[in-house]
Design a protein around this nucleic acid. Structure first.
Lengths: 185, 185
DNA sequence: GTCTATAGAGTGATAGAC
DNA sequence: GTCTATCACTCTATAGAC
């Protein structure tokens, strides 16, 4: 018996792609074992809680990734303009110009939202708050910054819907450009 | 046997709520029979093609509803400003201030997009085109009208995601107000 | 009898859990 | 792999309108 060492952390990104592609209900064990190249036994060894625990781990992973790579750009840069630009660059890369959808957004729209309400809420709250803080740093009024921040994050989610609907990456890229200008201008 | 006469058209709105709530994959026959109060026999009598035919009928129904009640507002009013205002009013009502999600948006994000690609694309294209035409009528340049129209329709989709994520209708209403102002201003 | 709407038992396949 | 539950779907049987 070959023992290809896998760890929980190595499985989570693969799991994330399955949940992202098929949603929570559509992520069947068959699709999960295919996507992770693991047997059912291994999957349940890593996630005794079943699909619910898998989805929790995936949401935590996405949340951590965004905190580290996207939200932190906003506060880490000495120049907040640079931080905002870095955020848009990262977002464009992460969503592969709209070819990839937002897993948390998909969960927010679905029936599974209630099950993962806290995770979904916290993800968007963290993003919006980090962006709003950067907007205040470039001189916006707090209230204006909050509204603009909602507009940008919501606009990105909407752009993902339209990019998928039209199957066109330029729809996503152009919206990203427009939102970037509005945030910085 | 009680014979409560139902017609296909009466069933479609009930079906729509099931697909809207659970998505295509999550709309099991158990949920469908529960939501429509019809037995499997009746359901398959109306939709011999099964779930695929049900989803097609639902998408066609939503599409027709929007064409009649939303997109037509944009062209029917003598004053395009009034038409755009009417569109925003209808959208706010239809989505129940963000408590309801967009069935076509959910389909666009999911794996089922490919199966219903034409319907999904046409729905958003019709909406964006109708709005862009109204924006041209109030004096916008065609190119600017197209960009703004994408922004508004995408913004509405994104606002639905955020409203569900935060479980707050005011997030949706405020975004709708902001987009309305931008469209008209 | 014919036609349409109804109900639901029963099919094999597949689901998630272990 | 094995378990039970549930999946989408089929089929037979029924009722009532013509």
């Amino acid at each position: 018996m070959a023992r290809i060492v896998a760890e929980r952390e190595d499985v989570v990104p693969l799991l994330a792609e399955v949940f992202r592609t098929y949603g929570f209900e559509g992520a069947s064990l068959a699709r999960i074992t295919e996507g992770t190249k693991l047997g059912k036994g291994s999957i349940y060894h890593f996630f005794p809680g079943g699909k619910e625990e898998m989805a929790e781990a995936v949401l935590a992973h996405v949340d951590a990734w965004f905190k580290r790579n996207v939200f932190e750009s906003l506060s880490a840069h000495a120049d907040p303009h640079e931080g905002i630009n870095a955020m848009f660059d990262e977002v464009g890369r992460y969503f592969r110009s709209g070819r990839r959808v937002c897993l948390v957004g998909v969960f927010a729209l679905g029936n599974e939202r209630d099950r993962f309400a806290a995770r979904v809420r916290d993800y968007f709250a963290a993003w919006i708050d980090a962006l709003a803080a950067a907007l205040v740093r470039i001189g916006r009024e707090p209230k204006e910054a909050a509204a603009l921040s909602h507009e940008v994050v919501g606009g990105i989610q909407g752009a993902l819907v339209l990019a998928r609907a039209f199957d066109r990456t330029d729809v996503f890229e152009e919206t990203l450009q427009r939102l970037r200008k509005r945030a910085l201008g």
